[in-house]
Nucleic acid binder design. Structure first.
Lengths: 365, 365
DNA sequence: ATAATGAGTGGAAACGTTTCCACTTTGAGA
DNA sequence: TCTCAAAGTGGAAACGTTTCCACTCATTAT
């Protein structure tokens, strides 16, 4: 139970019979030192079990060697994987990661950034509800701290790692169109918490138009409906003519299948379902899920690399959008001709959508 | 682009026309101050946009207000959820979380703990490959830093948050026995990386014995087999008589179903499958997975609470094991009588298993 | 009126580093 | 032998806090 924690460089110096400056130089290899004293210092450090205090270091060098990372939640594997990617990329760099979750709460978002700033993180990595509305983030920007966003579409003044949600959603529309689906819908959790969903809908909508398809129905649901198949089924039942649903993420897509089963609709015969994200488990389902495959891990890595670049004084260059791919699956097929398509378009206007698809502006390099 | 970051308490004091000691007292509410100077200091702080440097603070108080957290990987939702739980519990406490992942690598494990220690985290939260073999962890213990383990069975000298894997596995054996399954198997990833799997097998094995069932077959596979249904199918094909498989986690259980389908075995008619962990997605499958339901989030929360207790000087008390529950599902049914049970027990000895089930020793309070 | 209290205040030390600077030694070249 | 540069060394300042201590005034009790 020896309270042996407090071995400072001063102790090492004393034990080695030299000044702290010399000890520091030896231990850091940062200056001249005779072989003799070098030996003594190294032995003393070893015997005392000395290790540097990064706090003392941080104070003096004004670098905490820490990057702050904010994501909505680690319970969502998409974000967890991204953080894992960040972690991996940071591994050899000497930087550690301070993590925080907002639980999709905009106020918590801002508070978290503030907290990270007060911890003097050298850089910031974030996925937020509304980065453009966060005073703390703006403050960080003003301080000149390297910042890299994840998942968001490029935002003025920030480096962002992202997939082009608009473009990817267009791909889904194309897939539906190729199979001659006409009565389609986009299913999302309440838009307010995610610009990603908004842009996916925008892209989907835009490509449906471009292909001369009827506008897709927009179905927005809450957490409760997403988690209770019965409730989701009740909602789907209001749209009996649908032949294809594009869910804004894979979990929703799985929930849709479950709900469809309750209604006696077969997937994909009666209803095609396509998801988004490409989570691993989608492959393992009895009917592998058709989806847009992305790599959150790669996103995390790219973001971390950008950050490290900036931390090393490199220029802050916006990297290109990350690739995505349509992953074929067993949940997508030709529409069932028995589901009468009377051509009536029951489109609801989206709750919060730009009039013109505005994503994809500033498409990088 | 004002490099406005460096506003120290000294600046505030100067601007308020008082000494730094007074400013500190005012800003911390930690001592007497006249209404007059209080007002001046507060205004100065506000106008200058002052915020404390936690590094300066940490240096002086010798508390970094940071806890280190080490898990194998955030790509595994079980750990991600646990970390999320920790995060939630830490939220109001003023403590921040420094996170690190070992990717199931024992050497990385130790290095990570060392790194966290050098960052002067005030406490440690960890799930490791082999906590009992980590020198760095032992060092931390010697230093008297509060430590709380997660997922591991109780280990001498450490507080641990855990579910009783041995006990939970017995429950699975009971379920199988009740349905008169006799040819069972335990499927796990290579044992070396997880004492959890080992204890689950031990409990399963023990209860099978207790019920007079043949010893379960132990099937150990690698990552490769787990991720490629064809390869797993090839392995399963070597055990055509099995009527029930207990997979050491839910992902494996899902993989088993996939492999079974390739072999033309129906689940659950030809093969019952039970998982472990109770991940959310198991519920959403077309055939909801029978599994042992646990709550990694609750585990994270409990561990964090223990830590906070200790950090506040409370006694370090080992909390009771967390609850688990058998979750019924559509993957468990009576065995198919056509799968001839010839009574031949093809048990392989486990690669690294204690002769006697050794879990459950030191069952707390 | 005087002594004793206590509130209000600021200087300075301490926390563990790194780095600047000045000093001493050494060795080489003149 | 003398000079000079280079190598080796350690004291001290700085980083931003908090806290101990000593000091000055009022105010109250004697």
């Amino acid at each position: 139970m020896s309270k042996s924690s407090n071995i400072t460089i001063k102790d090492v110096a004393q034990s080695a019979g030299c000044g702290v400056a010399t000890a520091s130089r030896v231990l850091n290899n940062s200056g001249p030192a005779s072989a003799d004293v070098r030996e003594r210092v190294e032995r003393a450090a070893r015997e005392l079990g000395f290790s540097f205090s990064s706090i003392g270091r941080a104070l003096q060098s004004r670098r905490s060697m820490t990057v702050g990372c904010l994501v909505p939640s680690l319970a969502n594997p998409v974000f967890a994987e991204a953080v894992q990617g960040v972690q991996v990329e940071l591994l050899g760099s000497g930087y550690q990661m301070l993590i925080s979750c907002s639980n999709y709460n905009e106020a918590a978002d801002d508070a978290a950034i503030e907290m990270l700033l007060s911890k003097e993180t050298d850089a910031l990595l974030a996925t937020m509800v509304a980065p453009d509305r966060s005073p703390a983030l703006r403050l960080a920007q003003k301080r000149g701290i390297p910042i890299s966003l994840m998942f968001h579409d490029p935002l003025d003044g920030f480096i962002t790692s992202y997939v082009d949600n608009f473009d990817a959603a267009k791909e889904v529309a194309r897939q539906f169109a190729d199979l001659c689906h006409r009565r389609t819908a986009f299913l999302a959790l309440r838009f307010s918490t995610s610009d990603r969903s908004r842009n996916r809908y925008a892209g989907f909508h835009s490509e449906c138009r471009a292909r001369g398809l009827p506008d897709p129905t927009l179905i927005e649901i809450g957490e409760a409906e997403a988690n209770q198949p019965e409730r989701l089924a009740a909602i789907l039942a209001q749209h009996p003519k649908l032949t294809a649903i594009f869910a804004s993420n894979d979990f929703l897509a799985i929930a849709v299948q479950k709900a469809a089963r309750l209604l006696g609709w077969r997937v994909p015969q009666d209803l095609s379902v396509v998801g988004f994200d490409g989570i691993e488990v989608g492959r393992l389902l009895e009917k592998p899920l058709a989806t847009i495959e992305t790599s959150p891990e790669a996103m995390g890595r790219q973001a971390a690399r950008s950050l490290l670049n900036m931390l090393q004084g490199g220029p802050s260059i916006q990297p290109p959008a990350l690739p995505f791919a349509f992953r074929a699956g067993a949940t997508l097929a030709l529409p069932n001709p028995e589901k009468g398509d009377d051509g009536r378009g029951a489109t609801q206007p989206p709750s919060d959508l730009p009039a013109e698809p505005q994503a994809q502006t500033r498409m990088n390099r």
